[in-house]
């Protein structure tokens, strides 16, 4: 029996209308804006925006700051993703061990950073990373290491950002890994033990393959999330020094909402969108090939 139209409209209407207005239409609008020179003058009077074809994209391709921001973002992704996976999987396995006590407590503690406001905790981190008065360099000093100028040195600034990013992401991924681990049936391990498999062999031949769905989810979410890096560099370095921490979204924000080059910023948004889609599809294709 079909549902009456009135109910369909009533139940689906609000959600679909909102998605249409705030998601679907804006996506198309982004494409439209990206081929205009919409800027601060057009903001005062929309008719001053002109169609400029693909010239925003041409400019983008020859814009060293765009490439810089893209490389920075990819660098963050390439370093932070394996780090996050390794640490959160490691922690998950340690907590998930039968013998480990205080499981609940550890889980909560590792999870704390994830629910924390990035902007506010970045303020704390920038104080911890302070070259002279920061906790981190004091700690390194205990071991006779004179800590670097974390936020002021272009070779370390991105590492500082990655530190914060990973610190925040561990808890969330750890929870996902724990629930993935719990879904692996015990008999697989028991059988392997009977065959005399070592801990490492069990990890490689049972844990990793059995975690594949979790891994796919975790890495896909991470790809999408890390490619949108914004709050950490915005708060810690504002993209500096030497633009070494300028991320694509930070550059988009700067062009769009500091200089109000909204046409150009839309081109950046479209480019980012295409990059995210491409990388995600590659990721999914890869995982299909493996399985």
């Amino acid at each position: 029996m079909r549902t009456r139209l009135v109910w369909i409209l009533l139940f689906l209407g609000p959600a679909l209308a909102a998605l249409l207005i705030f998601l679907v239409i804006p996506i198309f609008a982004s494409f439209v804006l990206s081929v205009t020179d919409f800027d601060v003058y057009a903001l005062a009077d929309w008719s001053r925006a002109r169609f400029v074809g693909l010239s925003n994209f041409q400019e983008l391709l020859s814009d060293p700051l765009f490439w810089r921001s893209l490389l920075n973002t990819l660098y963050c992704l390439i370093v932070a993703m394996p780090l996050t996976v390794a640490i959160s999987l490691g922690v998950a396995m340690l907590i998930n061990r039968e013998k480990t006590r205080f499981k609940g407590l550890f889980r909560v503690i590792y999870f704390l950073p994830f629910v924390t406001n990035t902007v506010a905790i970045a303020v704390v981190w920038s104080w911890i990373l302070n070259m002279h008065y920061g906790l981190l360099n004091w700690f390194l000093g205990l071991f006779g290491i004179s800590g670097p100028n974390w936020l002021g040195d272009p070779t370390f600034a991105m590492s500082s950002i990655i530190m914060l990013v990973v610190w925040k992401a561990i808890g969330y991924n750890m929870i996902l890994f724990i629930s993935g681990l719990q879904n692996i049936p015990d008999f697989l391990y028991e059988a392997a033990e009977l065959d005399g498999a070592s801990g490492w062999q069990k990890f490689v031949h049972i844990t990793i393959p059995m975690l594949r769905p979790t891994m796919l989810f975790v890495t896909t979410m991470m790809l999408i999330g890390y490619l949108q890096l914004f709050e950490e560099p915005y708060m810690l370095t504002d993209g500096g020094p030497l633009n070494s921490t300028l991320s694509v979204v930070l550059y988009l924000y700067r062009q769009g909402f500091r200089f109000f080059e909204l046409g150009y910023a839309s081109a950046l948004a479209v480019a980012l969108f295409l990059i995210i889609i491409t990388i995600t599809l590659i990721r999914m294709r890869l995982s299909k090939q493996v399985s």
């Binding site: 689906l12 679909l16 998605l19 207005i21 705030f22 998601l23 679907v24 239409i25 804006p26 996506i27 609008a29 982004s30 804006l33 999408i224 490619l227 949108q228 979204v249 988009l252 769009g256 909204l262 910023a265 839309s266 948004a269 479209v270 980012l272 969108f273 995210i276 889609i277 995600t280």
Partner: peptide, 23 residues
């Protein structure tokens, strides 16, 4: 219709910010 909704999950937030701001 549901597939359409699903597809929008993948869209990064930055994609919509400028048009929604203008709107």
């Amino acid at each position: 219709l549901f597939m359409l909704v699903l597809a929008t999950i993948m869209v990064p937030g930055q994609m919509t910010i400028i048009p929604v701001f203008l709107m």
